[in-house]
Design a binder for these strands. Sequence first.
DNA 1: GCCAACGTTGGC
DNA 2: GCCAACGTTGGC
Length: 143
Amino acid sequence: MNYWLVKSEPDSFSWEQQVKNKVEPWTGVRNHTAKLNLKAMKKGDLAFFYHSNIGKEIVGIVKVVREAYPDPSAEAGDWVCVDMQAVQPVPAPVSLATIKADPRFSDMALVRLSRLSVAPVSAEHWSELCKMGQVKIKKGAKT
DNA sequence: GCCAACGTTGGC
DNA sequence: GCCAACGTTGGC
């Protein structure tokens, strides 16, 4: 089981839409590093849903329900997407400013590679961020 | 709206 | 194959 963080601009696709649609293909990744991360995702992996640009905070948790397959939105190239399912919201959204201010997270990909839209999260960071977000762990969301 | 970081493109 | 120029992303 691995943990991830995926970014989306709420203007194009928001957490609210993810919740409404329940399962949504995570398309549009056009960065090779991000693509590698998508390919490394396994069914059942969990990911933080992060709002970039507007909000700049972790607002929810999603689960990988379908592993990498060719991105139908790509006109050319071997880009991939996965299907994400909304699991639960983060009751107390954790902002980028908060994460940056905490030395514990100084080596997080989110901090170091601000432009990477699909990034890995260590188990330690995951459980710590869940605590900070006052996330009540549901089934399948083991720490 | 500006700027820094990063990726991509194109000339050599 | 190197590197400068340019475009895009995302934080501020």
